[in-house]
Design a protein around this nucleic acid. Structure first.
Length: 508
RNA sequence: GGCCCCAUCGUCUAACGGUUAGGACACCACUCUUUCAAGGUGGUAACACGGGUUCGAUUCCCGUUGGGGCUACCA
């Protein structure tokens, strides 16, 4: 990469480059979005969409929808090593799944190098930036010799003090240089939409490099250059960018561009209070899709993580989220991602959906679990397990067990029950089989099954629960299921009897 | 080290100087159910600490402590 520019002035010709506007040009924008706020979500294509990023995108989207603004997607693919089309696609898929749709883009930052360089050159010409001939090695040496062992090191502007002749001579000689921004000695403050006023002072900030000696832009320049070109009015992004903001505001000022509204959203933490990362388990929105979380539930949950509508409401439809949303109501402190609550919320959405709506998803999972049932209507099975499940995947797993009780895994509670009942467990199953066998296939329905088991329980003097629970455990491995008579009906006579008999005869 | 941000139940949060500090998840109990849940009802549980300001502070100000971010020719 560096070799490419060796021995030549990487900036030759850039001075005369016109400022390009980001596509699409203003007059190609959709009419409805001509005016109003313009917001963007600008992820790096790292191969997955982190829930924190998803929430940031959601907040941007909610605000744009609420205000009739425009939501723009920009892929920050300047890290060529990590960026691939496949990675970008994962992010687009994740956002689409969540229902966070963009009005413009995706644009690619990597394609805008010429404008980034042109902006840097403008700064150079106006004296707001200067050429720095220091090499990495020299910088490192300066850092080492700094007082606090390089801790509070700030560039000493030695290259800014170079006289014009020296600079001209070195440029002519083809010396490589980076472009450094001359940080003004002034207060830099803004009214953050979520934090209120935040203030820095230029004297505490370094003269940051904005263009590398190979002519590629540094992040802070690229972002500002892009946001100006895209006419972004509201920058809503992660908390970790607070300390980048004064640098960027200084760049806006130097470039003579209007400064957008900034809103800094806190990050999301894992259960241990540390920043949510892969070691906490699922952190990508794709993971939640795979677990069987519904997009509407995920959206609702994410919106409520760090934001509250101000009423005691938890389940909010998309329209309510949009109507109630405001940047000011976003929490200032980070929030812990509570998967249990997400599951609860998903369960709420699940129970509101009819079986037919869930069927395609459940069938997909059934295929994945290796229990395809293309010829069987699974609606009744879904209805049987739906109210007790919290994810689509759980529904599919339970449907699979009802299709084939052989794949039931014995849960600790089921095991405990078997142990507690002792020999009575198998005796009870035996009696159940006897009673049920007497039922003809034509009478295999919940009511008849219930009567059969009840009659058998009364005849042998056991409580109904003690007659039911062994059947439940034998068929599902668990102590929780739909009512046992319904379970038997849904599993079907021959399959149910076969597995009950097998459980009764099992030696262990 | 320097600069900056943050702080209400275990968790997500409400409160915008005066409340028995409210709701939700989780947990516990009860209730429905001659079987499991779901549901319903109730309960346990919080203003980090210290100074101010004020008639009155969870709320405003300062400090302490504790978290976190940035401090690269990373993004």
């Amino acid at each position: 990469m560096l070799n490419r520019y060796r021995g030549e002035n990487p900036y030759r010709g850039f001075e005369s480059l016109p400022l390009r506007s980001f596509p699409p040009h203003a007059d190609t924008l959709p009419r409805m979005t001509q005016n109003g706020p313009r917001l963007r979500f600008a992820p790096s294509p790292t191969g997955y969409l982190h829930v924190g990023g998803a929430r940031t995108a959601l907040f941007n989207w909610l605000y744009a929808r609420k205000t009739g603004g425009t939501f723009i997607l920009r892929i920050e693919d300047t890290d060529q090593a990590r960026s691939t089309e496949a990675h970008t696609q994962v992010i687009l898929d994740g956002l689409s799944w969540l229902g966070v749709t963009w009005d413009e883009g995706p644009y690619f930052q990597g394609a805008e190098g010429a404008r980034h360089r042109a902006d840097a050159m403008r700064l150079l010409e106006s004296g707001r930036a200067y050429r720095c001939f220091c090499t990495r090695e020299e910088l490192e040496a300066q850092r080492q010799s700094a007082p606090a062992g390089g801790d509070g090191f700030r560039y000493d502007r030695r290259c800014h003090r170079l006289d014009a002749e020296t600079v001209a001579r070195r440029v002519a000689a083809g010396d490589r240089f980076a472009v450094r921004f001359l940080m003004p000695d002034e207060e830099i403050a803004w009214d953050d939409a979520v934090h209120g006023r935040i203030s820095f002072h230029g004297k505490d900030l370094d003269d940051l490099v904005i263009l590398r000696s190979d002519g590629t832009p540094i992040y802070n320049l690229a972002v500002v250059s892009d946001d100006i070109a895209m006419r972004i009015t509201h920058v809503v992004r992660g908390d970790d960018h607070i300390s980048n903001t004064p640098k960027q505001i200084a760049l806006y000022r130097a470039l003579g561009a209007p400064i957008p509204v900034f809103g800094h959203v806190p990050m999301i933490l894992g259960p241990d209070g540390k920043k949510l990362s892969k070691r906490h388990g699922a952190t990508a929105v794709g993971d939640y899709r795979d677990k069987g979380i519904l997009p509407a539930a995920m959206r609702n949950f994410l919106a409520l993580l760090g934001w509250a509508p101000g009423e005691d409401r938890e389940i909010l439809a998309e329209a309510d989220l949009i109507a109630l949303f405001s940047l000011e109501a976003i929490q200032k402190k980070p929030a812990v991602f509570d998967f249990t609550k997400l599951e609860w919320m998903n369960g709420q959405y699940l129970s509101a959906l009819p079986a037919e709506a869930l069927e395609p998803e459940v069938r997909r999972d059934l295929d994945r679990l290796g229990v395809p049932a293309p010829d069987r209507p699974i609606g009744p099975l879904i209805d049987a397990v739906k109210s007790r499940a919290r994810t689509v995947l759980q529904i599919a797993e339970r449907v699979a067990v009802r299709l084939d009780p052989g794949r039931a895994v014995l849960e600790p509670k089921g095991e405990a029950l078997i142990r507690k009942m002792g020999p009575a467990y198998r005796t009870s199953l035996g009696l159940a089989v006897q009673a049920l066998e007497a039922l003809p296939a034509t009478a295999w329905d919940p009511t008849a099954i219930y009567e059969a088991i009840k009659g058998q329980a009364e005849a042998s003097g056991v409580k109904l629960g003690d007659a039911m629970q062994p059947i439940r455990v034998a068929l599902t491995g668990d102590t929780v299921s739909e009512p046992v008579n319904e379970l038997l009906a849904v599993v079907g006579r021959s399959t149910a009897l076969e597995h009950l008999a097998r459980a009764r005869d099992r030696q262990d």
